[in-house]
Computed example of a mutant assay.
Amino acid sequence: MNVPAESTDAAPIAQSEQRARALSPGAPFFVVMNAGSGRKQVDETRAVLERELGGAGRRFDLSVVTDPRELAATARKAAERARTDDGVLVGAGGDGTLCTVAEAALTAGVPFAVLPRGTFNYFSRDHGIPADLDASTKLLLEARAYPVQVGYVNDRMFIVNASLGLYPKLLEDRETYKQQFGRSRLVAMWSALFTLLRRHRHLRLHIEHEGRTREVRSSTLFVGNNRLQLEQIGMAEAKAVEYGLLVAIAPRPVGRLAHLILTLRGAAGRLSDSDHVMSFTFDRITVARPTRPKDKRRRIKIATDGEIAWLDLPLEFRVSEKPLLLLKPEPAVAEANRS
C-alpha cells in the first residue's frame, strides 16, 4: 500500500509561485478569535491589531468567541462579510480553532490568514508564519494568498491531522490535565505518558485503498497532513504532503511498554525506523470495521486537529479537491521560517 511521493508528477502546492494571489488593495480583515486562552491574550491581540492594522489605515473587525459551541457559526458569519467586502478571514488561536475558521473560509471562497495563539501551532509553523504576534500581524499587510492542501474525513475538515482509536483518548486526557495544570508542552507530555501506561484495546479495521482492502489491527490510525509534524516524529513520507497526498500511520499490535517505546521513538524523530509501525501515502481511503452479527456500533470517535467528534462509519479520508487560499510568506522565506 506504499505510494512514494516521488511517483507523482504534481508540483508542490506550497511552491507554486504562479498560483499565488495578491489581495485587493485595502482588503479588510475579519478576525475570529477563541477566547479560551484567556482575557489577557484577547486584550493583547486587540492592541496589536489596532497598532499594526489600524496604524496602516486598514479596516479590521475582531469577533471574540467565548463559547466554543458558537465558533463555527461566528466564523461563517465573518466569512460571509469577508466575501461581500472582498476581504480576508483571519483565525486567531490554536490549530483546532484555525481549522474551524479555515473551513468557513474555504466554503465561502475567501482568503484565510493566521494569528498563531496555540501551544503547538503546527499549521502556522509548517507554512512559515511567525509565532510572534506582531510579526504575524504585519505579515497580513504584505503576504499573498497561496493554495494549500487540506484533508477531510467524511464531511469534517482537518488541516493538521485526523485520527481514531488511542490518539483521540490521548487528546481528551490532555485537555483534562491542561484544565488542572495549565497549557504547556510539559503537561501534554506527562498526560500522554500516563495515558499510554494504562490499558488500551486494539481496533480491527478494513482499509480500502486503490481497489484493495487490507485488514489492519492497531491501537490507532493517524492521518497526517502536516509536513513539519510528520518530520518531527521521523516519518520518511513527510514530504508527500507537498505532492497532494496524506500520510497514514498505524502501530502494529504491541503491549503497553512497547507502545511507550514507540512514542519515545516518535519524540526522538525515529518512528519510521521501527518494525512495529505501518505507514503509507494516499489521496483517498475508506476505513470500516469488519461486520459482525448484532454489531450495532455505527459511529466512531474521531479527533481532527485536537477536536473530538463522533462520525458515522465507514470513514472516508481524502484530500480536498479545493485548496485553501492561505496568506503566507513567499516560498523561500516560508521554508526558512519553518521550525
Rank of each mutant, 00 (worst) to 15 (best):
L264M: 15
Q180E: 11
Y152P: 05
S37T: 14
T97V: 07
T119F: 10
S339H: 15
R298Q: 14
P331Y: 05
G224L: 04
S191G: 11
K296S: 14
Q149M: 08
P147N: 09
D9I: 02
V333F: 12
I302G: 00
V110A: 01
D312Y: 04
K169H: 14
R58F: 10
A104R: 05
G93V: 06
R174W: 03
L23D: 09
L139M: 13
A131C: 05
V247M: 12
E52T: 04
V65M: 07
T45Q: 03
R39L: 03
S63Q: 14
A104F: 08
R227I: 09
D86C: 07
A288S: 15
A268K: 12
V319I: 12
A240V: 04
S218Q: 02
E80F: 04
I285T: 02
S320Q: 03
E215F: 11
R289T: 11
P323V: 09
R338N: 02
L228C: 01
H200Y: 09
P147V: 06
T291K: 15
A135I: 04
V48N: 04
G234W: 03
F317S: 09
E210M: 07
Q15F: 13
E142I: 05
G55P: 02
P168M: 01
V150Q: 10
T291N: 14
E175A: 03
V31Q: 06
L166I: 05
K294Q: 15
R298T: 12
L230P: 00
M1K: 13
R284S: 12
